[in-house]
Design a protein around this nucleic acid. Sequence first.
DNA 1: TGACCAAGCGCC
DNA 2: AAAGGGCGCTTGGTCA
Length: 524
Amino acid sequence: MCVYVVVTGETVLPIGGSARHAADPASAVRELEAGGGPRWVWADTRETYPPLLEQGVRVARCHDLALTEGLLLAHEGRYGEPRSARAAHARLHGLPVPDDQPNVTGTLFAPEPLGAEAVAEVLADQLRRIEALPEPGRFRLLVAAESAGALVAAEMSYDGMPWSRDVHDALLTDLLGPRPVHGMRPAKLQALADEVTAAFGHQVNPDSVQQLVKAFKGAGVALKSTRSWELKKVDHPAVAPLLAYKELARLYSFHGWVWADQWVRGGRFRPEYVVGGVVSGRWATSGGGALQIPKVMRRVVVADEGWTLVVADAAQLEPRVLAAMAGDRGLARAAGEIDLYSALAQSFGGERENAKIAMLSAMYGGTSGDASKLLAVMRQRFPQAYQFVEDAAKAGEEGRLVRSWLGRTSPPPSGRWKELVSGPEGGRAARDRGRFTRNFVVQGTAAEWALALLAVLRGLLPEPARLVFFQHDEVMVHCPLDQAEQVIGAVTTAAAEASRLLFGSTPVRFPMEAVAVGCYADAK
DNA sequence: TGACCAAGCGCC
DNA sequence: AAAGGGCGCTTGGTCA
């Protein structure tokens, strides 16, 4: 049973009750939250929640109208229509529908917030539309998990991930040389660039694909691309320094000093997360590149004195999700083991590696190498799982929509795709979309499991423990040392609860191994 | 000059 | 070792 309380601007309105115009809305929220914890409904967590966090107010549950509208529109085959609460309200009243604005927090031209009555109206409409779906229970869970994700995302941006600028600077200095002055290359990077130039006998900018291709051509080497794995096949003295250059140059420009100046404050890395930013339901980032931190940088993430980092990732999440969704008994039995691929090895000639290739090929639409032979085995041994992803691929090839377990819906085919598919290269376009929808059902459901885990875990954490990182199937909690055991236990509990919420009683296990470490680099 | 694209590579 | 689905982000380079 949910109790909804509307928040907009300075109004806090219990549904069915009378509006309170609070001069101090944060206090009003704090007060109502303490008295039992309603489900707050608001137009957009990104606008409403950060100011509350600034005032030390956190809430347990919310219903984010914009995220919910996006999920509903996609399910209704109206993917891409404006999803803001304002747009939803306009549609209800046959008024002109405003385009979605980029996150307007803090801009001068932020429009007046939607009135409380309008917010309540949009909520009622959404709840009605959810009840009309074929699986309202699952979709309600999706909405709750997505909204909880929005709370976590805002909190993680606010709290930040521990980031030692001293360790970062030492690492960069070690690899690149001291921080250079304005526009210069770091010494070690410049030395490698000079080596490349020397190897060719003339000036070559290693950042320029064109110059590199031309230089190699001049040396008698025809390149298809300058990708590292392509270069590794080439025998030329420029290759070694060039490969070293590319690796370090990326570190320098993506996660170097300039990046740290912009994104690290007070020993915390504060990226911006975009909940549901990937069509499959995975999160994206809109700044800071939090989901692409190179592994070498993990040593920079260090717990505060007297605190620890509890790091946990779900093992082989996607094949487990497939086993549970497809109800494939054989695969589910293997997924009852800690190492799913080892458990499958027997079916694939005793080779764990073969089992892995077969599973990945089934989920991603792989065709290369041994894939087709292994897929034939998969089809025979695990027919339900095989058929499940085949059906998703077929739907995609035919231009139909597919949905995740809880009801997140794939984008429809574009107009361009429809043209292509009836043209001479149509087969290629169809297969490409088939691979996408094949992967969508698995990746999307895995994202839902992870979101459910995140939501449950958040509710189990003791004060002052904080979630500080979430990356697809991995979470990190920063907590005092003496809470480590409790937090590790909470992770296990949350994983079990996420599995139960999505799949009820299933033989499939979802192992989530958590370790407490002083430094992220020590987690693996 | 700014807008946009492609290449390339980091993460899952 | 990669395969292969999804992203973000930076650089160089082109075009209006």
